[in-house]
Amino acid sequence: MDVTAFIDRELAVVDYLFSVDKYEEAVPHLQNILQQNPVHPQALFFLALVYYGREQFEETRRLCVDALVNGFDKEGAYGVIAAAYEKEYRYPAAEEAYLQGLQANPNSAVLHADYARLMMVTGFWDKARALLNKAMELEPTNQNVINAMIDFSFAEMDEKKQREAIQSLMENGSDEIKKIVKLSLYHHFKGDYKQAREYAVQAFLMDPANRNLLALVEGCDYALHPLFLPRRLIGKLGGGAVVFLAIFTVLVLLAALNLDVILAIVFYSFVALVLYNWMVAPVLYHLIVRGKDPWTK
C-alpha cells in the first residue's frame, strides 16, 4: 500500500477514536504513522494530546514543539503547551505560550478565550473580560468561547450575560451532553438544585457509563436531600458565621434578661443543630441513602 494512503487511513482512524474519547486506543495507530514518518506533525500533535490525558506534561510540550517545528497549526500547538503549563500551575509560562500563539495567530478566538480563562484564575478579571469580548467579536458561535463566557458570567454574577451565554450555547453548541451539563451547573450555581438534578439525570441517561455525570447527579441529590434541610436554611440566611453570631446575640440577650430556662433551651438546641449538621446528617446520609441508591451499588 502507498505510504501516504496508509497514513491517511490511520489518521482517519485516530480522528474517529479521538472524537469518541478513546485516546489510548489511538496510540498504536499513531505509532504506525510515526514509524512511516517520524516527523508527521499531526500525529505528533495527537500523541501530545494522549500524553496530556496521561498528565505527562513535559512530554506533551516536547511533542507539541516537535509538531510546531514540522509545520503544525500554531493555534492548536501553543494552546496545548499553555494548557500543559497551566495544569502544573506554571501560570507565567502558560501566559507566554498563549502570547506566542496569539502573535502567530492574532485572530484565534479559542486562544483569546483560553487566555481569558488563565487571566480569570490569576485574578486579572478586567483583562479576562476584555479578552473574552475580543473572542466574542472574532467568533461568537465557537463552543470554547461560549463556554468561557458562561463561566465568566457565573463568576461575575451577571444575570443578563448568563442568559445570553446559555442562549448562545443552546443555539450553537454541538455536543448535547455538554449543553445539558452546562444547564445543570447553571441551575446548581443559582441554588436551584431540583432543576439542576433534572438536567444532570438527563445527561446521565444519555451516557450512563460516565462516572462524572453520575457524580453530578449524586451532588444534586446530596444538596437536595431533606436531611440537609437545616444546612440549606443556614446557607440562605448567610452562612454558618452569620447564624452563629445571631444565636450568640440571642444567648447574650437572654442571659441579660435572666431567662435561664429559655437560654438553656436555645443553647442546647444550637449545640444539637451544630452536631446534627456537621456530624449526624452526613453519617445518616451515608448509611441510609447511599446504601439504598441503586446507582451507587
Binding site: P92, L99, K127
Partner: peptide
C-alpha cells in the same frame, strides 16, 4: 486601556487567594 498582549504575570505577580470573607463577621465582633 488594557493591553491584551502584554504579559500580566510578571515577577511581581502573586497568586490570588482569599479567606471566606463571611467568617470575618466573627473577627469583627
Amino acid at each position: 486601556e488594557i493591553d491584551l498582549y502584554r504579559p500580566s504575570l510578571t515577577k511581581k505577580w502573586r497568586p490570588v487567594k482569599s479567606f471566606n470573607i463571611k467568617s470575618f463577621i466573627l473577627i469583627a465582633v
